[in-house]
């Protein structure tokens, strides 16, 4: 299992390739990155580093020996069967779940019981949930300005400007004064993304952001995520949207039974999976 981190580092070449997309803007977006761009932008700075991490729920060993390194600007897609621990893994990164063994470094801050550090990390890490988790008693605008005002101590006016900016980015500024209950699922999820972005996070975590949505709404959310990816956001996405993975991921991780079974760049992962479990999973999910 110590294989995982090595793989991740060996994949750094692919990381570099895709990260250059950002510097070239959307023009380069459709084209496959050229080999010559390899050395250009990817920072070697580490955004998240997980080493030999274990987690238990009571006696149940949910996560086993997880090692994973994510560089700044990398987009990682995590997939795997239900109950394999994907959500648990990304929830450990912002301490919604506590790990019992091993080490998690986020933006060079180690996650321990130190509340101050947890707060610091949560400020830098945005998260988007399957069920949106918008605050139903607050308007869309208030949902977006709440954390900047209370956590970042931003003046209300400025927070509202920033919120409107991001609501425009997710293409729903006209809904700003409505309440979450009045929006469609796809709109709510885009608000949730905007809400996270208002905190200006360095890393975004997505936990099945589209799996509670109707098919026609999935696209509008994925489009927002793809734009975000092209702007160089560090992203960890639990998703089964393989089209999304192919388009923007630097690296795809397959998990099963609480372990990382395989990690590879999308091309290799989909066209040439190594492990039998991965093959089986892909055959089920792709057809």
């Amino acid at each position: 299992m110590a294989e995982a981190p090595k793989k991740s580092s060996s994949k750094k070449t692919s990381t570099k390739k895709s990260a250059t997309k950002k510097s070239n803007g959307s023009a380069a977006r459709a084209a496959e990155p050229a080999e010559t761009q390899v050395k250009m932008t990817v920072s070697d700075e580490v955004a998240i580093e997980i080493t030999d991490m274990h987690k238990w729920y009571g006696d149940f060993h949910v996560l086993k020996d997880i090692s994973l390194k994510v560089n700044k600007g990398e987009r990682i897609v995590i997939c795997g069967p239900s109950g394999s621990g994907k959500s648990t893994l990304i929830r450990c990164i912002n301490r919604l779940e506590e790990h019992q063994k091993g080490k998690i470094l986020v933006e060079n801050i180690e996650l321990t019981n130190d509340l101050k550090k947890i707060d610091e990390i949560r400020r830098e890490v945005g998260m988007v949930f399957q069920h949106f988790n918008l605050f139903p008693h607050l308007s869309i605008l208030e949902n977006c300005t709440l954390a900047p005002i209370w956590v970042r101590k931003m003046p209300k006016k400025e927070a509202e400007e920033i919120a409107m900016h991001f609501l425009e980015r997710v293409r729903i500024p006209e809904q700003a004064l409505k309440y979450p209950g009045q929006l469609s699922g796809g709109q709510q999820q885009r608000v949730a993304i905007a809400r996270s972005l208002c905190m200006n996070p360095k890393i975004m975590l997505f936990d099945e952001p589209t799996s509670a949505l109707d098919p026609e709404m999935i696209k509008e959310v994925l489009d927002v995520m793809i734009t975000l990816a092209h702007e160089g956001m560090t992203m960890l996405c639990v998703t089964h949207e393989m089209g999304f993975a192919r388009e923007v991921a630097n690296s795809v991780i397959f998990m099963d039974e609480g372990q990382i079974i395989e990690q590879n760049e999308p091309e290799g992962f989909f066209n040439n999976p190594q492990s039998d479990r991965t093959k089986l999973f892909l055959s089920q999910i792709l057809h």
Binding site: D119, R122, V125, F129, H131
Partner: peptide, 13 residues
């Protein structure tokens, strides 16, 4: 629980 998690993920104390 989602409300708690949404709030915590935003960094609220």
């Amino acid at each position: 629980r989602g409300q708690y998690e949404g709030a915590m993920a935003l960094g609220l104390s």
